[in-house]
Simulated scan of single mutants.
Amino acid sequence: MTAPSAILKLVEIFDRNREVYTSGTYNETQLRREFVDPFFTALGWDVANVRGYAEAYKDVIHEDALKVGPATKAPDYCFRVGGTRKFFVEAKRPAIDIRYDIHPAYQLRRYAWSAKLGLSILTDFEEFAVYDCRVRPIKTDKASTARTLYIKYDQYPGRWGEIAGVFAKEAVLEGSFDKYVESARRKKGTAEVDAAFLAEIETWRDALARNIALRNPSLSNRQLNFAVQRTIDRIIFLRICEDRAIEPYSQLQALLAGPPISINAS
């Protein structure tokens, strides 16, 4: 697939002024307006909502509100089809080293992991990186962890087919994006959010059972299982309430500083 003339022009402009763009004075807002917006427009997305669609049906939401832990975060771009999120794009100024800097990669992956998105993109136009966001993000992960594609700006003309074949709006509508996501589903290290959460709950169950049994040796197996399950149910319920701002955040953590709590399993 041949790269459109708009992409060739962007590559030419960036190459001609690369020293200025990567010096640190060129900021993220400038990058988004001058390079990232037209890049994804060339992929067929209505980035500026030229068609005037209602909010619920826009192709692209800029700084989409997303709950990540106790805070509300805003990925730079959320690309959607029929109001359904497909992938995020996080833009960084070209002075950032996307290939090796762990912080931007962790930020993007955390956003997409929380939103249960299969793939998302990190770019400063100079670099274009795609991540499998079903791999649980850890702060100490290398920038290369879960990265499935990495392309430099001067490779866009020759590798445009790889990009457009997955991330063009037409490709998403035709199912190519979903097929790409599915092709990596069983790779080592990938885990859906729900599966990872269930696995984590099992570690809670084991730790709680050992702790409660140690402090309540008279409990029967039935009573012990009941106490463990009731505790887990209440923890999850409280965390959901905290996440939805129904209850103050970090109540469980605050309890650690208080007096010991006994469990009545009768």
Rank of each mutant, 00 (worst) to 15 (best):
G82V: 14
P4C: 00
L122A: 03
L238V: 06
R136I: 15
F14W: 05
S23A: 12
D64G: 10
A196E: 05
G44T: 11
I163E: 04
E12I: 01
L31C: 01
S144E: 05
S218E: 11
Y21W: 09
V166S: 05
S120C: 02
V36L: 00
G175L: 12
L252P: 09
E170N: 01
S120K: 13
I13L: 08
N221F: 13
A105D: 04
S218V: 08
V135K: 14
D132L: 07
G52K: 08
I102H: 07
F125A: 03
D97M: 12
N225H: 09
V135L: 13
E174P: 12
W113P: 02
A48K: 07
R109H: 05
R32H: 01
E182I: 08
E247W: 09
A42Y: 01
I212S: 00
K139Y: 07
Q155F: 06
L208R: 04
V68T: 04
N216M: 12
A129V: 15
V81I: 15
S250A: 10
Y77V: 03
V181G: 07
V60L: 03
I163S: 00
F167G: 05
S183H: 05
V60K: 04
T84C: 10
F197P: 07
Y131Q: 14
E127V: 02
F79I: 03
R244Q: 13
K73A: 09
Q30T: 11
I212V: 02
E55L: 07
P248S: 02
I61M: 06
L224C: 14
D233T: 10
V47L: 02
S120N: 07
R80T: 13
W113H: 06
R85W: 02
I201K: 01
D194F: 10
T22R: 15
Y249N: 11
K86T: 11
A168D: 08
W113S: 12
F40I: 03
L122K: 08
R134D: 12
G44S: 06
H62R: 14
D141G: 10
R210A: 13
E28H: 04
F87V: 08
T84E: 15
A191T: 14
T140G: 06
V36E: 00
A209T: 09
P104F: 08
A184H: 14
F35H: 01
R210N: 12
T203M: 05
D101S: 07
I7F: 02
P137R: 03
A191D: 13
I102T: 15
I102D: 07
D46T: 06
V228W: 02
D132M: 13
I61A: 02
D59N: 11
L219I: 01
R80K: 10
D141S: 00
H103K: 14
R239D: 09
G165V: 11
R93I: 01
V68D: 13
E170S: 03
I138G: 01
S114E: 14
I61Q: 10
I261S: 06
T72N: 09
N211L: 10
P4M: 08
K152F: 07
E202W: 12
A209C: 05
L8V: 12
S144K: 04
G118S: 04
E19C: 05
H103E: 15
L31N: 00
L119F: 11
L255C: 07
P217N: 06
Y111I: 01
R185Q: 15
K86D: 06
I61C: 03
R222D: 11
L256W: 14
K67F: 05
